[in-house]
Amino acid sequence: MSASLAQLITEDHVVLDASAGTWQESIRQAALPLLRSHAVAEEYVGRMIDVVDTFGPYIVLAPAVALAHAQPDGTVSRTAMSAATLPQGVVFGNAAHDPVRLVFCLAAQDSTSHLEALKALVQIIRTPESVERLIAAASPQEFLSGLVPADA
C-alpha cells in the first residue's frame, strides 16, 4: 500500500517563507514539522545532512528543488514528507540547480510506502511553472493544491 503525496504532506507539514543562511539550516527548517509530528527522531535530520556532506548536493533534483532524505535505520517512525519554501534561496553547491528555494524532506519507513508520492513529486518538480507556484504559495492550503497533479 503506497500513500499519495497529499497523504504524506499535510498542512501542518508545510513551512512557508523560511529563511536559511546555509543549506544545512534549510534542511533543518524543512524537517521541523516531521520532528513536531514525531514522524522522525532528531537523529534522522542529522542523517539527511550527512548524506549531502558525504555524497554532495545530488539531492537537488531539479532547478530550485532539493529532496532531502536518508536511510531510516530505526529513526523514522512513520512514512511522511514535509516541505519548506525559501523565497530568498539557499546555495547547496549544485551549480546547475542553485539557488534552492524549495526543500522537501522525505522520511521513508521502508522502500515502497512512498513510491506513489515520489512519482507524483517527480512529475511536479520537473515542471518549472509548478515549482514556481509552490514557492509562491501564500498558505499551506495553496501549497497543497499545487501538489495535485494537473491531469487529476
Binding site: 548524506v51 558525504t54 555524497f55 545530488y58 539531492i59 532524505h69 536518508a70 512512498h114 515520489l118
Partner: peptide, 11 residues
C-alpha cells in the same frame, strides 16, 4: 544507485 537507495535512485 544513490546515497540512501530510496529517494533519488527511485526517482
Amino acid at each position: 544507485i544513490c546515497g540512501a537507495g530510496l529517494g533519488s535512485s527511485l526517482a
